[in-house]
């Protein structure tokens, strides 16, 4: 064997001329962010840091009723306490502090809920694509049933039935969004299943778990990661909507969505109190979309089309 392989090596050396093979294909390009993408990354990084350190950075406690009056303008200084950089809300609390505390609720809960939705949706979706047949049939019909219900109505129903607590909120958001993740994961899975390398693995006699986790999933990671960003935005908006309706995060805990609702009447007095948390939601969701756009552009434009489903 050694003789034979060495023979092959020398023959290869001799037979090689500059015309034999064209140069190697260039190595894959690394993901390079555009300037909008960089802004996105900076903003998302900022909010993630706030999730961790927000309560310590914030000048006041979220529940402290310390100001002189409600709906004070930005920059008002309360004697002996400090400056309210973004003013105060309807209960004489500092808005900046509440936004920084609220990041933990809004961003943190959304992140955990999206992760859970992905764990459920991707596993079930790719398994459906790989196993096909009755398994796919049952999972897809259950999924269709969940998808056919309006998300907010379903959310309201669950929260009303089980009471509003953070675990219930996370679970509700995860189940609702797992159904759309399932559909995308199944679609990508089906596309990958027809590739020859998957057939080669099946012909080799590999188990279904090998095919799911070694052949199919690695090829779906990039598009699914892009979708993760979008889905996270939907969950932020969902939790904010629930809070806006009064069924999400319960007072006095700060949450961006409920902050908008509670301060809405401030607009009548010319206060910017509901605008600041709305801007916080916008900055986080837009920042994520900026990143998603960049990643999506790098991994093929048709990705965006698939995700609008």
């Amino acid at each position: 064997m050694t003789d034979a392989t060495q023979g092959a090596e020398t023959e290869a050396e001799e037979g090689k001329t500059i015309y034999d093979e064209l140069p190697d294909a260039p190595p894959k390009k690394k993901l390079k962010l555009s300037w909008t993408g960089k802004i996105g990354v900076a903003l998302v990084a900022f909010w993630i840091i706030m999730v961790i350190v927000g309560p310590w950075v914030a000048p006041f406690h979220e529940a402290d009723i310390i100001a002189d009056d409600s709906y004070l303008g930005p920059g008002y200084v309360t004697e002996g306490e400090g400056t309210h950089w973004l003013g105060t809300d309807y209960l004489e609390r500092d808005i900046l502090s509440r936004i920084l505390w609220g990041a933990r609720m809004t961003v943190g809960i959304s992140f955990i809920a999206t992760l859970l939705a992905y764990a459920m949706g991707v596993t079930a979706g790719i398994a459906a694509a790989v196993k096909r047949g009755w398994y796919d049939m049952i999972l897809s019909r259950i999924n269709d049933a969940i998808l056919s219900l309006p998300t907010i109505m379903l959310g309201l129903l669950i929260v009303v039935a089980f009471g509003s607590s953070i675990p219930i909120l996370i679970g509700t958001a995860a189940v609702i969004y797992a159904s759309s993740v399932f559909r995308i994961a199944r679609a990508f899975g089906q596309e990958i299943m027809v590739m020859d390398y998957v057939e080669a693995a099946q012909a080799r006699g590999e188990t279904i778990w090998w095919i799911i986790f070694r052949e199919v999933l690695p090829n779906a990671v990039m598009p699914l990661a892009t979708d993760f960003g979008l889905r996270l935005v939907f969950v932020v908006l969902f939790i904010s909507s629930l809070s806006f309706l009064g069924l999400g995060i319960q007072p006095p805990a700060a949450d961006w969505g409920s902050m908008v609702r509670q301060n809405l009447e401030g607009l009548q007095y010319g206060s910017l109190a509901p605008v600041w948390p709305a801007l916080a939601i916008a900055s986080f969701t837009i920042a994520i979309n900026l990143i998603v756009d960049d990643v999506s552009a790098k991994s093929g434009g048709d990705l965006a089309k698939k995700m609008i489903s």
Binding site: M195, D196, Y197, P218
Partner: peptide
């Protein structure tokens, strides 16, 4: 397979 592009898993 005929097409090496689709016969080799691009992520392996």
């Amino acid at each position: 397979y005929q097409m090496a592009d689709t016969a080799l898993n691009p992520r392996q």
